[in-house]
């Protein structure tokens, strides 16, 4: 079992900070939904390093990202199945 990052849409959409998208070491993993104004995670690409959690908690001070076990992720976005999306809405 491994954990992946999950972003709280409510907290994230109220900030528009985008810092986690810039500090994630993996390409095309933390994406940004322009319509909802929130970052979201491609769960099939996340390696669970928790750098985004540190950035969100310490640098941005928004506390919007949590690590969750992969089997508890509901309707996780998988970029390898559906491809790149500018918005999930």
């Amino acid at each position: 079992m491994y954990t992946v990052a999950e972003i709280d849409v409510e907290i994230c959409s109220s900030t528009k900070c985008r810092l986690c998208t810039q500090f994630c070491p993996e390409g095309n993993t933390i994406l940004y939904d322009e319509t909802r104004g929130t970052a979201y995670v491609a769960v099939d690409r996340c390696k669970g390093c928790e750098i985004c959690v540190g950035i969100c908690d310490d640098l941005a001070k928004h506390h919007a990202i949590k690590m969750v076990p992969i089997d508890q992720v509901k309707d996780g976005f998988e970029i390898s199945k559906v491809g790149f999306k500018r918005s999930l809405v």
Binding site: R18, T21, Q22, P25, E26, G27, N28, T29, I30, L31, Y32, E34, A39, R45, K47, G48, C49, E50, I51, S80, F84, R86
Partner: peptide, 16 residues
């Protein structure tokens, strides 16, 4: 970043 498809992804380097 996050709003466009990046040129690099899905590589086998260590997490973090």
């Amino acid at each position: 970043l996050g709003s466009f498809k990046e040129a690099i992804e899905e590589h086998p380097m260590c997490a973090g």
